[in-house]
Amino acid sequence: MDLFLQQFLSGVAIGGVYALVALAVVMIYQASDHFNFAQGEMAMFSTYVAWWLIAAGWPYWAAFFATLAISFVGGVALERIVIRPVEQAPVLNQVVVFIGLLVIFNALAGWLFDYTIKPFPSPFPEQPLFGNRYIGSHELGVIALTLVLLVLVFAFLRLTPTGLAMRAAAENPTSARLVGIRVGWMLALGWGLAAAIGAVAGMMIAPIVFLEPNMMIGTLLYGFAGALLGGLDSPAGAVLGGILVGIAENLLGTYVVGPELKLTLALVLIVLVLLLRPNGLFGRRIVRHV
C-alpha cells in the first residue's frame, strides 16, 4: 500500500511536469494548428540558461524568473523571425522547420554547455515536508507550482482582454483582424507564453533527470501523450491528460511493464488515443448551426 501511494503521488508530481509541457504544446497548437516538436528542446535550452545564471552566482528564484522572462522574449522572437515566414507554407514545410529547431537547440546546448550531465538544484527543501513518508518536497513543490501556473494561464485567457483576443485570433483569424486584433502578435504572444511555461517544466524536471541536452526527449513524448489524451484544443484537458499520463506511467512501470518499457507506454497511449478518440477526452467538437 505504501509503495502504491508513493508511486501514485510521484506520478502526480511528474505528471505535473508533463502537464506543463502539454500546456505549452496546446498554447501553440490552438493558436496556429502547429504541433511544436521543438517545445522540449526549447525548455531544455531555457533550463541551461537558468543553470548558467545560477552558476554565475544568482539566487535560485532570481534565476528562475529571469529565465522565464528570457524564454518569453525568446519565444516571441522565434515566432516573429523563424515561424512567421513559413506561416502560409504547406504543413510539411512547417514540420521540417520544427524539427530543424529541435536539432538546432539540441546542438546549440551541447556546443555551448557541453554534453556532460549536470546536476540542477531544486528550490524546495531536501527533507520531506511535514515529516510525511509518501512524497518528497520537490515533488510536492512541482504539484503546487503546476497548479499556480495553471490558475495564472486560465485567469489570463478567461479574464483579460488580451486573453480573449488570443482565443479569438486562434479561432477565427480573419474575423479577429476585422475587429482590429493584431493576429500576428497574438501568435507571437502564444509562443512566448509557451516558451515560458516550457521553461518551468524544464527547471522542474531537471533536478529529477539531471541536466543534459537530451533530457527533454522522454518528457516531451509524455507531454504530447498528455496533450492528445486531454484534447489538443483544451488547456484544462491537456493539464489533466498530463497528470493522468504521469500516474499511468508510474503505476504501470512499477506493477506491469517495468521501468525499461515505460517510455513505450507513451507511444502506445498516443496511438490508442488517435485511434479511439482523436479529439481527446476534453477536445471540443464545435456545435454549429447554419
Partner: peptide, 24 residues
Amino acid sequence: AHVPDGRGTFLRLSVAENLRLGAY
C-alpha cells in the same frame, strides 16, 4: 466594420465575448 460573408462568428466563444471583441 465588416460583417463578412458567412458572418465570421467566434463560434466557441460566448455571445457576450463576441460582442466584447467587437469593441476590442
